[in-house]
Design a protein around this nucleic acid. Structure first.
Lengths: 336, 336
DNA sequence: CTGAAAGCGCTTACAG
DNA sequence: CTGAAAGCGCTTACAG
């Protein structure tokens, strides 16, 4: 109601006594317009609170400057199990925002194969950022075949031709095990995520390397793979304890798994970290807040989010494929 | 690359030997087109994997079918303190999705007053959903003055002319206190959120009503207001314990506050729930996962999210203003 | 440096 | 029920 008269570049053009083309150029800071003309136009636009129409611009330029953050909740609804998603999403949103991009969040049904088309072919988004949970091979394959621009959080296969950012999982596994060894632990269990994930394999590799360097070898009986859920961690921890009552440490593949493991350990009458030391992974905010603050491997999640955003945008604009590995660090608190 | 030939309704029109207008009508399921014509067009569109161009449609219809979820992280980045936001966001996204709307997440700087214009005046979104944290009076005022369509989570002032959905806070407070009274507690502390929030006032009112009905009166020394953060809850709980060492129960205004309170209580050498019973609020997923599972007042958060979406869309389409109050329920677990 | 004109891909009065 | 045409508000060759 305030400014019904000045809504389009045509209005500005009229006021500035130039053509729409010139207004458009001025607004886009084109070098093709004389400095004073540009200034005058910009001033008028500002005075009248002019805002360029996004859909018109998108239609004309054939790009949306919008990126879809694709995810699906672990269960039906988002819960604390999706805390990682929340934390990284903040970083992604902020990274996109600082480059003038918007973030659409799309929750896909894991069985849906049309979602990418639904968003890309309609011109609603320019690209996707995928989380580990939505990073099924079939999805990646579809995206690659479509020629869809995307970036994934997580380790790519060696021959991957798409963008990714991932933590340094080998070092992460090594750091966790080394810390535990330094504490004097000898029977260190590996409470892992899914065995078929590269990340998990890398963490195991780092863990094994550390053990070997200490003259120990990885005992298969001390290895368990869950799915990152608390439930799987509880079951796994129980099983490890039953099979190997002498274990004196656990390296869990996520903070949530570590928290669940600690409960099981405590319920068994053992003390953490005295009887069994536990190190987690991720350093989610909850790790520090936990009843027993977690010793864990920090992945710099907000930074990871920002890099996902930046590198996807760079890919969109230049076609450059980047694969970045983020350093991780050990954060010592109370659980080990 | 697969279908360079069939990208627009003009292509479909050519194939179906009708006009673009007819294709458009068929695609929009207009009653103005004969059933068989419609079917034929739809079939052709499907066969060629046609997807309508969103920006063109948005430009033409002057609406984006996109809604902004506006929030700002408690701290710089999202953390477990924003779990409520994550959980409700899931509901909102799913509610929007089922009506064919998309969700943009926009993180606003609390000092920014331009954000609404930036998204609405540019035609990027049709409306906003605001969380309590972004629901500052100044923002609401701006939105109302702009005539911006929006809905807020939280209790509106009695004379509000905008949409809202909120929990039944009076009943929530009453239920919590009644449960504690039923357990035999007599000295029940109120560990509240900000004193100036209607929600908090309502919860206090319900709490006071329950006490009065039991012949007790609310002791001001047992009342503390924080800001929902763990830190404020810790400080508050400590103070309450110092001032009133005889307290035997706490009604915390969020699950996160309850969890923090429990820690302080336990550190003081008291047992929960034996010495001090604690009830939380919200029933976030973390309430059940907590080391000591929380007795709490459940707000059906996913449902709340879905209603926020639905009612905003209804407002966008019909102008009908709704204010819904969601029932709450007591969930008894271990902490009280 | 600037403008006239075409084009982006839809929708929707208007006319039949 | 169907179509021709105008219009949504931008951008960008093209010509000067």
């Amino acid at each position: 109601m305030s400014k019904k008269s000045v809504q389009t570049i045509a209005d500005i053009a009229r006021l500035a006594k130039v053509s729409k083309a010139t207004v458009s150029r001025a607004l886009n800071d084109s070098p093709l317009v004389r400095a004073e003309t540009k200034e005058r136009i910009l001033r008028i636009a500002r005075e009248h609170n002019f805002r360029i129409n996004a859909p018109a611009r998108q239609l004309s330029m054939r790009q949306s400057r919008t990126v879809a953050f694709v995810t699906h909740a672990h269960h039906k609804d988002f819960s604390v199990a999706d805390l990682f998603v929340l934390e990284i999403m903040g970083g992604i949103a902020s990274g996109l925002h600082s480059s003038g991009y918007d973030m659409l969040v799309v929750q896909v049904d894991p069985r849906d194969t049309e979602w990418a088309h639904q968003y890309l072919d309609t011109g609603r988004v320019d690209g996707f950022v995928l989380m580990t949970s939505s990073r099924k091979q079939v999805h990646i394959k579809t995206l690659v075949e479509m020629g869809a621009p995307f970036i994934v959080w997580g380790a790519p296969p060696p021959d991957a031709s798409y963008c990714s950012v991932t933590g340094d999982n080998i070092t992460g596994g090594r750091l966790a095990a080394e810390h535990l060894l330094r504490r004097g632990c000898k029977r260190i269990a590996f409470l892992g995520g899914p065995a078929d994930e590269v990340e998990v394999q890398h963490r195991y590799k780092g863990y094994r390397m550390a053990l070997q360097a200490a003259g120990l070898k990885a005992d298969p009986a001390l290895r368990f793979h869950g799915d990152y859920s608390s439930a799987s961690a509880e079951a796994g921890m129980q099983r490890l304890l039953d099979q190997s009552p002498d274990l004196d440490a656990v390296f869990a593949n996520s903070d949530l798994m570590a928290i669940a493991a600690i409960e099981v350990i405590q319920r068994s009458g053992r003390k953490v970290p005295e009887d069994v030391a536990v190190v987690g992974y991720d350093d989610l905010s909850i790790a520090a807040y936990n009843n027993l603050p977690l010793t864990t491997i920090r992945q710099n999640i907000p930074l990871a989010g920002r890099l996902l955003a930046q590198n996807l945008i760079q890919y969109l604009q230049t076609g450059v494929v980047t694969n970045v590995t983020l350093p991780v660090e050990l954060v010592v608190r109370k659980s080990a």
